[in-house]
């Protein structure tokens, strides 16, 4: 006897849950590899003893002060950017939406540069100004979209214009800065996951978790929105409120990620697209998978940057841009064919 539609629906859900489990195991294995790999080798036995606090001083220092924070930062930032990208794309019904294509990351970068150049870069001021910049860009984009009833394509063009404006303003700030602060601002602008401490990582991870929980609680509303704004309203969804709440949370996560780690492009754009190809349009699965894929992408990019240099690494933002742009073009071409 063939299965009924409801049983088929439940079976599909179980299959995707098994897929999530495999994805989580893959991320854990990659994290384990990344923990052991580097100029100071940590074989599995030594790695485990260091994790349990039973190793010599050097192994423990390398693990707890260098590698573990870096990997935790890659997972938290990657997951956050993947989730932000998905929320922005779904809430604006625009497949090209992401913190970097809408100028949100550039707004955060401008805010952070201003804080570094004007006040020397105290953590609190960089965070607050990065958030103000990200939120300013979000308000401008959403406000313009609502006031002028812009199409999704026009919203992306407005994002490009805004990115350019924030970029020019950042360059002007750097031109006016003294050499020390200029160097600080330039180094800060390289997207890098190796510079933050546990406190910053905890802040990004907390915001990412909040965004993930919010996204999970809005999964059905986002599905309704996928059928159209008016259609979602007739299903009882308060679309405007959902948009504002989602975009402010996404801007907060992007701002924290940018404030502590610089601009990391493409993760927020690619992770949701890849997730759609793997699990379809259902936000019950898209929300967790976008976060998982974002984390996997950034950890892979960071591990790759360490692998190809042998010792040391270069900023992960460079890797995500070099790998992300061709990968995105490939996804577009594959989608068309």
């Amino acid at each position: 006897m063939s299965k009924g539609p409801a049983e088929g629906f439940l079976e599909r859900s179980r299959k995707k849950q098994r897929f999530f489990l495999s994805m989580t195991v893959l991320i854990l294995l990659l994290a384990l590899f990344a923990l052991g790999f580097g100029s100071y080798r940590l074989p599995l036995a030594k790695l485990l003893s260091s994790l349990l606090g039973q190793s010599d001083g050097v192994g423990s220092v390398v693990l707890w002060n260098i590698r573990l924070p870096r990997i935790a930062a890659a997972l938290a930032v990657g997951g956050g950017l993947g989730l932000s990208g998905l929320l922005i794309q779904s809430l604006l019904r625009n497949p090209l939406g992401s913190p970097s294509t809408l100028g949100i990351s550039q707004g955060a970068a401008f805010g952070a540069s201003l804080a570094i150049i004007a006040w020397g870069g105290r953590v609190l001021s960089v965070t607050v100004f990065a958030f103000a910049g990200a939120l300013g860009a979000t308000v401008l984009i959403v406000g313009l979209g609502r006031l002028r009833n812009l199409t999704p394509e026009a919203i992306i063009l407005a994002g490009v214009a805004l990115s350019s404006l924030f970029g020019a303003a950042t360059v002007l700030l750097q031109y006016l800065a003294d050499e020390t602060r200029l160097a600080m601002a330039v180094v800060w602008s390289f997207g890098d996951v190796a510079r933050s401490g546990w406190r910053e990582i905890a802040m990004v991870a907390g915001a990412t978790a909040a965004l993930g929980l919010a996204g999970a609680s809005w999964r059905w509303h986002l599905n309704a929105l996928d059928t159209g704004v008016e259609s979602a309203k007739t299903l009882g969804v308060s679309v405007e409120r959902l948009r504002w709440q989602g975009l402010v949370l996404a801007a907060l996560v992007s701002a924290l990620a940018t404030a502590f780690h610089g601009v990391i492009a493409f993760v927020g754009l690619i992770a949701p697209h890849a997730a759609r190809r793997l699990v379809g349009a259902d936000h019950r699965f898209l929300v967790p998978l976008s976060g998982l894929l974002g984390a996997l992408l950034l950890l892979s990019a960071d591990t790759f940057s360490r692998l190809i240099l042998g010792s040391g690494s270069f900023p992960v933002g460079v890797v995500t841009s070099f790998l992300g742009a061709p990968l995105f073009l490939y996804l577009l071409v594959r989608g068309r064919s």
Partner: peptide, 27 residues
Amino acid sequence: ARRCASVPQQGHGTDLTVFDVVLLGRL
């Protein structure tokens, strides 16, 4: 939405499955 359901002219462009779309009616 509990009292009044609408069948709009548009809104058929989603990649959600038929079951998922009909289930949205319970939202």
